[in-house]
Write a protein that binds this DNA or RNA. Structure first.
Length: 406
DNA sequence: CATCCACGGGAAACCTTGGGCG
DNA sequence: CGCCCAAGGTTTCCCGTGGATG
């Protein structure tokens, strides 16, 4: 740690002090930000508002199931409408409560109930209590204060025991003389509906909404709006926005991707000390965003496949410089990979799967585009194939080390 | 040609889940 | 409520096949 490191640290810190970067409010580009208007989703906003509005006159709104691909605005429209509903109700002192639950985090019935309980009764501690008890406490509160509750279950496909949860929440309405509970379920898994049992399906899907993907024009409008909020005046070129919109349109109209692209482009522009975001920045951001997505995906992979990938990454790093093939790329045969994998699995205290199943994993990962598998050809015995990681082994190892140790 | 590495289909074994029944 | 069994899904086991070597 000599002068060099010191200098580069100073440089980083300085960059963050002198706030003449491209961003004005970086959060406006984040997927969690709720903008003040939602272009190209006016229809959906209207329909959802109509659906929840009866709550204001004391009637229980129908349950809604919202379906659409990632980045089609499901979550943001829901949060937007409920936020406005909450504000409206508060002004008029109507007892409306909304609870937003992301089922990827709260993925069991009890953790959903705990989350609702915390929202309604912030002073109580629900940990360690039975689900039935929490349920009764919630019901008691709803009844006592005549609360009209809206529960949003986002990424509901990730919830274990959808039926039980939906059924329990809905059944509450039969037991309540005052107050009500309505459900909004959100998912990007189209087949989810078919996998539900008929009773759950008819309960949850009293009303259905489908969110279509944005077209390039819509994406451009979204980016323009957000750029106005997020960037300084003139710190982002029209060309950059158009390019980001075009890439995202190709990614099946994913607005989250578009925003991520612009956000990363902004980061890169700042790193380079540029005064404005250009098309080149967007171009460079594309790689980074794709990497972000892959890393996110890797984090969500089944444990065994993560172990496999970590073993592969470590193997690549260990072999760097040795055994190379022409181009200087590291070569790994499936035999070696399996050995490394089973060793690592045992180190982590897990039973390795058979080599047969291992091969299934390999082809699955190849399908996702994380790995690449090719016939080895001459120089190797028989039908040997070589496996390549398509992403930086350092980053893969980084992410997985963290995930697997915890 | 025998041997080796590895692939991938299919049967068998094992595990999970949910419904029926005492 | 607990037990058991059927159905389904997952994983292993077994094996024939193909390609490259010596």
């Amino acid at each position: 740690m000599g002068g060099m490191a010191e200098d580069s640290i100073l440089e980083i810190f300085n960059r963050h002090v002198k706030r003449n970067g491209v961003f004005k409010n970086r959060d406006a580009l984040s997927p969690h930000y709720i903008p003040s208007n939602l272009p190209y989703r006016e229809e959906q906003v209207k329909e959802l508002s109509e659906t929840v509005a009866p709550i204001l006159s004391g009637r229980k709104p129908e349950n809604v199931f919202i379906y659409g691909k990632t980045g089609t605005g499901k979550t943001v429209v829901t949060r937007y409408v409920l936020k406005r509903l909450g504000e409206f109700a508060k002004e008029r002192e109507i007892p409306v409560n909304t609870v937003y639950i992301n089922c990827r985090i709260h993925n069991t019935r009890s953790s959903v109930f705990i989350k609702i309980g915390r929202e309604l009764l912030p002073d109580d501690n629900f940990l360690g209590l039975s689900t039935a008890y929490i349920y009764e406490r919630i019901l008691g509160k709803v009844r006592e204060a005549d609360i009209r509750l809206m529960v949003v279950l986002d990424e509901i496909d990730k919830l274990k025991g959808i039926s039980e949860t939906v059924y329990a929440l809905n059944r509450a309405n039969d037991e309540l003389e005052k107050g009500s509970i309505s459900i909004i379920g959100i998912s990007n898994v189209l087949t989810l509906k078919d996998s539900l049992d008929p009773r759950t399906k008819s309960t949850l899907c009293q009303r259905e909404m489908i969110f279509p993907p944005y077209n390039a024009e819509g994406l451009r409008k979204i980016l323009e709006d957000r750029a106005k909020e997020g960037f300084r005046e003139g710190a982002v070129s029209d060309g950059a926005i158009a390019l980001a919109a075009a890439y995202a349109a190709r990614q099946s109209g994913d607005a989250r991707y578009a925003l991520q692209l612009l956000l990363r482009a902004g980061d890169i522009a700042e790193e380079e000390g540029a005064s404005a975001v250009t098309e080149e920045h967007v171009e460079k951001a594309k790689e980074r965003v794709e990497e972000d997505i892959i890393l996110e995906m890797i984090e969500a992979l089944p444990e065994q496949e993560q172990i496999l990938l970590l073993a592969m990454a470590k193997l690549v790093l260990a072999k760097k410089g040795q055994k190379t093939l022409g181009s200087g790329e590291v070569v790994i045969t499936s035999g070696e990979a399996y050995e490394a994998y089973s060793k690592l699995a045992r180190e982590l205290g897990k039973d390795p799967v058979s080599d047969r199943w291992f091969r299934e994993y390999i082809s699955e990962l190849a399908m996702y585009g994380i790995l690449n598998v090719v016939q080895a050809g001459k120089g190797f015995r028989g039908n040997t194939r070589i496996i390549k990681l398509l992403f930086s082994p350092v980053k893969i190892a980084d992410v997985l080390q963290r995930v697997l140790v915890a």
